[in-house]
Design a protein around this nucleic acid. Structure first.
Length: 420
RNA sequence: GCGGACGUAGCUCAGCUGGUUAGAGCGCCGGUUUGUGGUACCGGAGGUCGCGGGUUCAAGUCCCGUCUUCCGCCCCA
C-alpha cells in the first residue's frame, strides 16, 4: 500500500462521512433560516491583511498557524482560518454597513497549520452565523438560542452544555486586565513557564491554563465582576434575562475568555466531554470592534461558529440514504422497456437505478447490495403483456402491475416502511 | 513547535524470546446446471508487513531516521 496520501491533516469525505457533513450543514442552514438568516459564500482565500488585521499582534498565530503564501503577482494570500473576518470584510466591501442589520449564515472549509488530532484538522469545516448591527443584549440571547436550536435539531442537545461568560466593555475589561497582570506579576515565580510567557502578551489566557501550578493562583485571581461598570453590568443582566426568555439554560464560567481586543461582553461555548480535549463544538461571542478594524464604521456584531467534523462525530446515527428502486430487465428487448420505466420513476421523484450487465440473478444480487427497497423485473412474459413484476425486497412479496401504477404503489409502500 | 503511543490484505486484527513459500474473520470476485436477492456450502483474487537505512548466516519481529494517525502540551482567531 504505497499509494499517494492526502496532505497531513486533510481528509477525503466519502460515504457516511460526507453524509454526516451534509446533514450538519443542511440542518444548520435550515434552522438559521428560521431565524431569518441568509447564506453568504466568501472566497476561501483572502489578502493576508484581512486575517492579520483581525488578529492584531498575536504574532504566533499569524506567523505559525496560517496557510500563507505569495501568489505569482507577489501578493500575500492566506487560506481563511475562520469565517468571521471574511464576512466583515465582505460587509464592508459590499457597502452593506448601510443596510443593517445583516443576518448571515455560512458554511465551508477553513485552514489552520496545526498539529492534527481527532476533531482538529488542517483543513476542517465550519458552520457559522453572524448577526451584524444590533447592540442589544437580546440579540445575543437570540443568536445563542439559535445555536442551541441547531444542536437540538442535530439531536445532540443532551451531549453538550452551554458555558457563558461576559468580558464587559473595553473600559471594564481594561481595568480587569490591569488588575490581573498586577496580581499575577506579584506571584510570577509561582506561575508555570507557559503562563509566565502568557503574562507578557495574553494575560487573560492564564485563566484557562491547565497547569497544576497555575490552578491555585487562578482561584484567588481578581474577578471581572468586581470591575464591571454600570453599562456592562446591565448588559450582562439583560443577556441572562434574554436567555431565560428564550428558554436557554447555561452555566456561568468565568474562565471563558477571548484573547483579542475587538471582543466585548458576551462570550460562550457549547462543550461536550465526548471528544477529549477538543470538546468545544460551537462557540462565539460579541465582537463590536471587528468591522471597524476592517475599515468600516464602528458596528456592533455577535456570532458563532461550529466545527462540522466535531458535530458530525456526535451524531447518533449517520443520516440514512434513500433506498433506490432497482429496475431489472431480462434480455435486450426488455432493456428498452426498462429504460422507459427508469425515466418514468425518476420523473415521479423515485430514486431508480439499473445495472448495465448481468443476468437476472446477478442483478438481483446487485439490487440487494445497493440496498434497494424494491426490484422492478421485466422479462419476456411481462414485455408481451405490458406489465412488470414489482418485488418488495424486504418481505419478498411480488405482484404483477402496470408500469403506470408503479410510482404511486412505491410511494405508498415507502411511506409505510418509514412508519415502522 | 514539545512529549508519548501506534502503523501487518479494502476493514478489524493475530503473528511466542528474530528462523522455511505471512494468517484469521468480515468484505470483494466466481460457482452450487442458467425467470429471482438477502441465509447456507464450495472455490478464488488480494500484502515488497508505512517508507528508507543499519545489525545479523537470517528481520514483520532488534536499532536509527522519516512519514502518517492517535493521546497530551503550546495555540485556539
Amino acid at each position: 500500500m504505497n499509494a499517494a496520501q492526502p496532505v497531513r491533516g486533510t481528509h477525503d469525505l466519502i460515504g457516511e462521512q460526507q453524509r454526516r457533513h451534509a446533514h450538519v450543514t443542511e440542518t444548520a442552514r435550515r434552522v438559521t433560516g428560521l431565524y431569518g438568516f441568509d447564506e453568504w459564500a466568501t472566497p476561501v482565500f483572502e489578502n493576508t491583511s484581512v486575517f492579520a488585521r483581525s488578529l492584531g499582534d498575536t504574532s504566533d498565530v499569524v506567523s505559525k498557524e496560517m496557510y500563507t503564501f505569495t501568489d505569482r503577482g507577489g501578493e500575500s494570500l492566506t487560506l481563511r482560518p475562520e469565517g468571521t473576518a471574511a464576512i466583515c470584510r465582505a460587509l464592508v466591501t459590499n457597502g452593506l454597513t448601510q443596510s443593517l442589520p445583516q443576518k448571515v449564515f455560512y458554511a465551508g472549509p477553513m485552514f489552520r497549520y496545526e498539529r492534527p488530532q481527532k476533531g482538529r484538522y488542517r483543513q476542517f469545516h465550519q458552520i457559522g452565523a453572524e448577526l451584524i448591527g444590533p447592540s442589544e443584549p437580546l440579540a445575543d440571547a437570540e443568536v445563542i438560542a439559535m445555536g442551541r436550536d441547531v444542536l437540538g435539531a442535530l439531536g445532540i442537545a443532551d451531549e453538550v452544555v452551554l458555558e457563558l461568560n461576559t468580558l464587559g466593555d473595553t473600559e471594564s475589561r481594561t481595568a480587569w486586565r490591569t488588575a490581573l497582570v498586577e496580581y499575577f506579576s506579584a506571584h510570577r515565580e509561582k506561575l508555570s513557564e507557559d503562563s509566565q510567557v502568557r503574562l507578557e502578551h495574553n494575560p487573560l489566557r492564564i485563566l484557562d491554563s491547565k497547569a497544576q501550578a497555575d490552578r491555585l493562583l487562578i482561584e484567588d485571581a481578581p474577578l471581572l465582576d468586581q470591575f464591571l461598570n454600570d453599562a456592562s453590568r446591565r448588559f450582562w443582566d439583560d443577556l441572562r434575562n434574554g436567555l431565560n426568555a428564550f428558554g436557554v439554560s447555561y452555566t456561568v464560567n468565568p474562565r471563558i475568555v477571548r484573547g483579542l481586543d475587538y471582543y466585548s461582553h458576551t462570550t460562550f461555548e457549547f462543550v461536550t466531554t465526548r471528544l477529549g480535549s477538543q470538546g468545544t463544538v460551537l462557540a462565539g461571542g460579541r465582537y463590536d470592534g471587528l468591522v471597524e478594524e476592517m475599515g468600516g464604521p464602528a458596528t456592533p456584531a455577535i456570532g458563532w461558529a461550529g466545527g462540522i467534523e466535531r458535530l458530525g462525530m456526535l451524531l447518533e446515527a449517520p443520516p440514512e440514504v434513500v433506498a433506490p428502486v432497482a429496475v431489472i430487465p431480462q434480455g435486450n428487448e426488455a432493456e428498452h422497456r426498462a429504460v422507459q420505466v427508469l425515466t418514468l420513476l425518476r420523473s415521479a421523484g423515485v430514486r431508480a437505478e439499473m445495472a448495465w450487465r448481468g443476468n437476472l440473478k446477478k442483478r438481483m444480487e446487485r439490487a440487494n447490495k445497493a440496498g434497494a427497497s424494491h426490484a422492478v423485473i421485466i422479462g419476456e412474459t411481462e414485455l408481451a403483456k405490458g406489465t412488470v413484476q414489482l418485488r418488495n425486497l424486504s418481505d419478498g412479496l411480488q405482484q404483477e402491475v402496470r408500469p403506470d401504477d408503479l410510482a404511486s404503489l412505491l410511494s405508498h409502500s415507502k411511506k409505510a416502511e418509514q412508519n415502522t
